[in-house]
Design a protein around this nucleic acid. Structure first.
Lengths: 359, 359
DNA sequence: GTGAAAGCGCTAACAC
DNA sequence: GTGTTAGCGCTTTCAC
């Protein structure tokens, strides 16, 4: 700041001039000019120390490479950046313990808030979040009762939508390829499948689950091989519900290996409605969980909180909705592309830069 | 810090005890205990102000959603996190001007270094980078002569590899679907294609370029439709080289529309070797540009620089290499999946968590 | 509307 | 090996 003082005014005035409040036109001009000349921009750290705000928000997930989290990150960034907030990417690690460490590390005050989507949760983590020194928003299961801001979606209901759709197009023997049950999404989706396929409401003849080791294509392929090698008494499977798009693509590949046409012999649904599913051949029917929307909602929540809104914990729910594409088309069309790019039908969301890319 | 002083020692000792240097066993134990009791962790901002280091590095690209950048981000994070560095995600915007603004903003000192991969570059940006107050590493074209650390790859040569491969498997009439020419990658790849298909070394009969509006699936589909609607005098195209994987997938879809089998009637190559290409049906032959490796290299470079290594600007080149998959298989196999998951053959790189995902 | 001065939390000299 | 002290760059009272 000594530098900008070359404008012949005090430190205080310089600060005031550069940062809005209470300075005369003349002062502002003078200081601005001097600052421009010297190529000066105020030090973010000094500012942070004084103001006790870093203008940074952390986004933490287990695996930043996951398309779903990438969509969230993009959305979060888009909401936060215009407000002058930077986004710090962090990893929760794969265990609850490492996630707790992460939350505790907020104590050093390098961010004003945290958006976290933990794969696994327990009471200790909940407690750590409750005691966190900065606002924390959880994307995942609802924690309203625990007094924690959260953005959730009903993936169990989403699974119900997928099953209902398959039954509606005449499928009766439905397999479910799920990911690890000890994860929050894995557990929720299992609940959804079980609910949808048990009781008199289920019009199908058979329902069966096979568990994949992970939410990946490779794991989906392996699990689907196991599932499809079995033939239920009611007859061979005519549909498979996958717990996410990556698993679903593994299932499609397994179907290919076995010479099963998709959707002719085997209809397949995914979940998350990711780009990869939209452009796949056949394009993938998927339950959208509104990843971008959840990201935006979470970002707005932290923004509220850091702006010292002190209302009680909020819970925002984003409804799942099914997007029907080729992989569950009633008739088995030739391997041609539909008139427009698959996925064109569901450009309902924001006019975001979906399918954008380069280099 | 007043708090931790409850341990009955001075501020300085507390700092020393918590942060390594020169404190007795007893002191360390005592302070650690007190700190643990009070749930204290040292304030990152105060520390930064004093040390003039933020322990943060920014990673800036035009579009964080692009799979290539996601791979880089993951790799960068993996290298930096163990060294105690946080990663701040930023956007370069789509114009050179906005990228220049970004570089200038480093003046406020919120990060210790920047890794940037600009789509477009000009002299002014180069100058801004040279004058930047913190180390900047550019991923893209080589800027060694300009005294800027850079990590580059020879995508032009990579295009040559793709063309050579197609010629080798007997293709003679090769189309090229490129992205915008006014981008650094677009220009380089055009140069590569032109070099590979002109002069006596080219054993093919015809070479022709069609430009897409963007590096996306949709743009690739549109461009491929235009390209394939033309029939060169030498005969219909029997191969298409795409400037990246997303464009290539657009080309595959266009081929589907026209009833052209891939690779039977039309062999197709992509570039970037992304997950989406690896799992696609048919899996995509692609020129790997070592995204993760470039990310790691860039991260190590900034790490060197912030550790005040003062050597002259470095330039690290990552060689492109072709990964052959189904989309250019000499014979047209039935639509079955190969024995293992496509892409399994090229797990040469790090044992990274490729195809990892969840939720 | 402007200047002077205090102090955010920390680490690194510097004495002892 | 430990305590004392200065000061990093900024914003914000508090006087004027």
């Amino acid at each position: 700041m000594q530098v900008a003082e070359r404008a012949g005014v005090s430190l205080a005035s310089t600060s005031r001039a550069l940062h809005g409040t209470g300075a005369s036109r003349a002062m502002v001009d003078r200081v601005r000019a001097a600052a421009a000349e010297l190529g000066y921009s105020p030090d973010a750290i000094g500012r942070s120390l004084r103001m006790k705000r870093t203008f940074q928000v952390a986004f933490a997930v287990a695996d930043i490479g996951n398309p779903v989290y990438v969509e969230m990150l993009t959305a979060i960034h888009e909401v936060l950046a215009p407000h002058g907030y930077r986004v710090v990417v962090m990893s929760t690690g794969h265990t609850v313990a490492s996630t707790i460490d992460l939350v505790r590390s907020l104590g050093s005050g390098f961010v004003d808030g945290l958006i976290v989507s933990p794969l696994r949760t327990d009471d200790e983590l909940v407690k750590a979040i409750q005691q966190a020194p900065v606002p924390v928003v959880v994307i995942g299961r609802s924690l309203e009762k625990q007094g924690i801001d959260s953005v959730s979606t009903d993936s169990a209901a989403g699974l119900g939508q997928a099953v209902a759709h398959l039954v509606e197009i005449g499928r009766r023997r439905i397999g479910f390829v799920n990911g690890p049950l000890d994860t929050t999404p894995g557990a929720a989706r299992q609940r959804g499948f079980d609910a949808a396929t048990s009781g008199p409401a289920f019009a199908g003849d058979h329902a069966e689950t096979e568990q994949a080791d992970d939410f990946t294509v490779a794991a989906g392929l392996a699990a689907a091989r196991r599932l499809l090698s079995r033939t239920p008494a009611a007859g061979p499977f005519d549909a498979v519900v996958a717990a996410n798009d990556l698993l679903a693509i593994g299932v499609i590949r397994a179907a290919g290996e076995l010479g099963l046409s998709v959707p002719g012999a085997l209809a397949i649904t995914g979940m998350d409605d990711t780009e990869i599913g939209r452009v796949f051949q056949p394009s993938l029917t998927s339950v959208s969980l509104g990843s971008a929307e959840r990201g935006r909602a979470a970002a707005r929540l932290v923004l509220d909180r850091v702006g010292d809104v002190v209302e009680p914990a909020q819970q925002i729910a984003i409804g799942p909705h099914l997007v029907v594409r080729e992989s569950t088309l009633p008739a088995d069309p030739p391997a041609a592309t539909p008139a427009d790019l698959p996925g064109a039908e569901d450009v309902a969301g924001p006019p975001a830069s979906k399918e954008k890319s380069a280099r």
